[in-house]
């Protein structure tokens, strides 16, 4: 299960701070929403369901964007698996 690392600090406006490395990132509103869900500990399936209900997006498109964003989070060393 994909999870945000425990010590990652986030804010409602999408700012992310990794206290282990000192790296900080800004996110757009939807990315901030995903981060918030990841932080709350719900599963990726549940997050995707929420996004599909809330936004006008095809499943295929969501999957593509999801993979892309997870890759970015992984490269930024923000995830645990």
């Amino acid at each position: 299960m994909i999870k945000l690392k425990n010590n990652i600090a986030t804010s409602e406006n999408g700012f992310i701070f990794n206290p282990s490395t000192g790296d900080s990132f800004t996110s757009n509103p939807i990315a901030a929403e995903i981060i918030s869900h990841l932080k709350s500990g719900i599963s990726t399936t549940e997050i995707k369901t929420i996004l599909l209900k809330k936004y006008d997006v095809e499943v295929k498109q969501l999957e593509r964007d999801w993979e892309d964003y997870m890759l970015q989070l992984k490269e930024a060393n923000l995830l645990t698996f």
Partner: peptide, 15 residues
Amino acid sequence: ITDKGKAWAGVTVED
């Protein structure tokens, strides 16, 4: 980092 290699801004990290 300045051209002399000095930190002009920094952040505390936990590691």
